[in-house]
Simulated scan of single mutants.
Amino acid sequence: MPRPALSVLDLVPVRSGQTTAQAVAASLSLAAHADRLGLRRYWFAEHHNMPAVASTTPPVLIAATAARTSRIRVGSGGVMLPNHSPLVVAEQFAALEAMAPGRIDLGLGRAPGSDPVISQLLRMSGTTSDVERFPEHVNDIVSLVSPDGATVRFTSGGTYDVHATPAATTTPEVWLLGSSDYSAQLAASLGMPYVFANHFSGAGLERALDLYRSGFQATAQNPAPRTFLTVNAVAAPTQDEAEQRALPQLRMMARLRQNRPLTALETVEQAQAAASEFDSMGEQIMSGVRQTWFVGTGESVAAEVRTFADRWGVDEVMLSPVSGSFDDEPMDAAPGRVQTLELVTSALGD
């Protein structure tokens, strides 16, 4: 099987006792490492008001990462468009493209990225019904970041030209993200590249890809469908260490799905000490989630990546490195996540 390209999805995890500054420093270091390893792209996801997630502002993180890297593409996975004005998003990513020409990806999603209270706070200047205008806003952004800009047409007559930046020579690549039939069909109808959020659960993957590929409407920019897939992964020198490093994130997933109070991410030792916290349902959730993750040695995870890419006909797999930390590991680094990227990249070879 051919070697699939590797990319990274980062939620900027925050572990117990770690400050936001330390968590961001760890992720920026990881991004620089991914750049040196030759990975294809590095994306930040938008989430809000979660104790274990510091990726609240992808454009800010993208700017910092672009400044610390030289070749890897950097982007959002994604910006949750209903939370933001299309013009503001277009201006942010046009500026990012000007700072790192040819290296910026704008992944757009329709989900809120948080709970209803936070969604309302994010949308105080607009209305929650904007989610229904998602297709329109996607088209607006594509037009606004282009050199020609967009045109506002008034109902009373007349027009007004709008540009996200005065004189664009290159534009960010816009992707649609999703985990449902809706996003796949929309991406196909607009002739846009598409990413299925397989790291959520994987449910509906086959149907989404079929809808996207069979319904794709070619454009000059995208003459054929383009897609890759995401997956949660932990790689370590031994299977036992990999399973240990996966435990904190597995327990966080069980809390999320049982609507338990969220906390900063546990260390491996904290997670092991609290192993009896969950009832049988919580244990079933963790077991089910674990079955969809790639956890093992570099060689075994690389083999799973190859098989996964071949099964779904993609040439790129985006890893969300969900490797936890041990108590004695530095707060401003992520050795487990670095190790995952290093081992899988090495095992995949050239």
Results as ranks from 00 to 15, higher is better:
Gly17Cys: 12
Thr19Ala: 06
Thr19Val: 00
Ala21Asn: 09
Gln22Glu: 10
Ala23Met: 04
Val24Met: 05
Val24Ala: 08
Leu28Val: 02
Ser29Glu: 05
Ser29Tyr: 05
Ala32Ser: 11
Ala32Asp: 09
Ala32Val: 01
Ala32Tyr: 01
Asp35Ser: 08
Arg36Tyr: 10
Arg36Gly: 09
Ala45Thr: 05
Glu46Cys: 02
Pro51Lys: 05
Ala52Gly: 14
Val53Cys: 11
Thr65His: 03
Arg73Glu: 05
Arg73Met: 07
Val74His: 04
Val79Ile: 14
Asn83Ile: 06
Leu87Tyr: 08
Val89Lys: 06
Ala90Lys: 00
Gln92Asn: 15
Glu97Gln: 11
Glu97Met: 15
Ala100Glu: 10
Gly102His: 02
Arg110Asn: 10
Pro112Tyr: 03
Gly113Ser: 07
Gly126Asp: 03
Thr128Ile: 05
Asp130Phe: 04
Val131Trp: 12
Pro135Lys: 07
Pro135Asp: 07
Ile141Ala: 03
Ser143Tyr: 01
Gly149Thr: 05
Arg153Tyr: 14
Phe154Ala: 14
Ser156Trp: 12
Ser156Pro: 12
Gly158Cys: 05
Thr165Tyr: 15
Thr169Tyr: 04
Thr170Cys: 09
Val174Thr: 14
Tyr182Met: 03
Leu190Phe: 06
Leu190Asn: 03
Gly191Ile: 00
Met192Asp: 03
Tyr194Leu: 06
Tyr194Met: 03
Tyr194Trp: 08
Phe196Pro: 05
His199Pro: 04
Gly202Thr: 02
Gly202Trp: 00
Leu205Tyr: 10
Glu206Thr: 00
Leu209Glu: 01
Leu211Val: 06
Tyr212Arg: 06
Arg213Ala: 02
Gln221Met: 09
Gln221Leu: 11
Asn222Asp: 10
Pro225Met: 10
Leu229Arg: 00
Asn232Tyr: 11
Ala233Ile: 05
Pro237Phe: 06
Thr238Cys: 13
Asp240Tyr: 12
Ala242Tyr: 08
Glu243Asn: 15
Arg245Met: 08
Gln249Asn: 15
Leu250Ser: 09
Arg251Ser: 08
Met252Ala: 08
Met252Lys: 11
Met252Cys: 11
Gln258Val: 12
Pro261Arg: 00
Leu262Phe: 08
Leu265His: 12
Thr267Pro: 15
Val268His: 14
Glu269Ala: 12
Gln272Trp: 09
Ala273Asn: 03
Glu277Gly: 04
Ser287Glu: 11
Gly288Phe: 05
Gln291Glu: 13
Gln291Cys: 09
Glu299Arg: 04
Val301Cys: 10
Glu304Arg: 13
Arg306Met: 13
Arg306Asp: 08
Phe308Val: 12
Asp310His: 07
Arg311Lys: 11
Gly313Met: 10
Met318Trp: 14
Ser323Asn: 09
Gly324His: 04
Asp327Gly: 01
Asp327Ala: 14
Asp328His: 09
Pro330Ala: 10
Met331Thr: 12
Ala334Gly: 12
Pro335Met: 04
Val338Gly: 09
Thr340Asp: 03
Leu341Lys: 00
Leu343Val: 02
Ala347Gln: 03
